[in-house]
C-alpha cells in the first residue's frame, strides 16, 4: 500500500503544480489545494501507516497495551489542514475580489504591477 500512496502523493504534487501553472485563477487555487493535500498525505505516509490502531488509549487502561498509530503526524496534519483551510478560504475570496476589480480570470493579464 505504501507504494500506492507514494504514487498518489506524486500524482497530487504533479497535478497541483500543473494546475498552478495554468492561466485561470480558479485552477490556481485548486492546484494549491491539491498540493496541500499532497503534503498532508506525505506527512501521514512518512509517519508510517498502520491499520485499525487509532491512537486512543483504551477505556480501562492508562497506557497503550497494543501497538498504536503514531499520533504526532495526525496532530500535525490536523493543524496543517485547519491552517490551509484559512489560507484557502482567503485565497478563494481573493480570486473573487480580483475578478471583480480586474475583470478577468486570466492571470496573464495581470502584469501591470511588474511594469517598470
Amino acid at each position: 500500500m505504501e507504494i500506492l500512496l507514494a504514487i498518489t502523493i506524486g500524482l497530487l504534487y504533479a497535478a497541483g503544480i500543473f494546475l498552478i501553472l495554468r492561466r485561470s485563477m480558479v485552477r490556481l487555487i485548486i492546484g494549491l489545494i491539491l498540493l496541500g493535500n499532497g503534503a498532508n498525505l506525505l506527512i501521514f505516509l512518512l509517519g508510517r501507516i498502520s491499520k485499525g490502531k487509532p491512537p486512543i488509549i483504551p477505556e480501562d487502561s492508562k497506557v497503550f497495551l497494543d501497538a498504536y498509530a503514531d499520533p504526532i503526524p495526525q496532530a500535525l496534519i490536523l493543524t496543517a489542514i485547519v491552517i490551509s483551510f484559512g489560507l484557502q478560504a482567503y485565497a478563494i475570496i481573493l480570486v473573487k475580489r480580483a475578478y471583480r476589480v480586474v475583470k478577468t480570470d486570466d492571470i496573464e493579464e495581470m502584469i501591470t504591477t511588474d511594469e517598470i
Binding site: 507514494a6 504514487i7 502523493i9 497530487l12 504533479a14 497535478a15 503544480i17
Partner: peptide, 18 residues
C-alpha cells in the same frame, strides 16, 4: 514535464524514507 518531475521526486523520496 516540470510537474511530473516534481511528482516523481516526491514519490522517490517518500519511498526512500519509508
Amino acid at each position: 514535464l516540470v510537474a511530473i518531475a516534481v511528482g516523481a521526486l516526491m514519490t522517490i523520496i517518500s519511498l526512500e524514507v519509508l
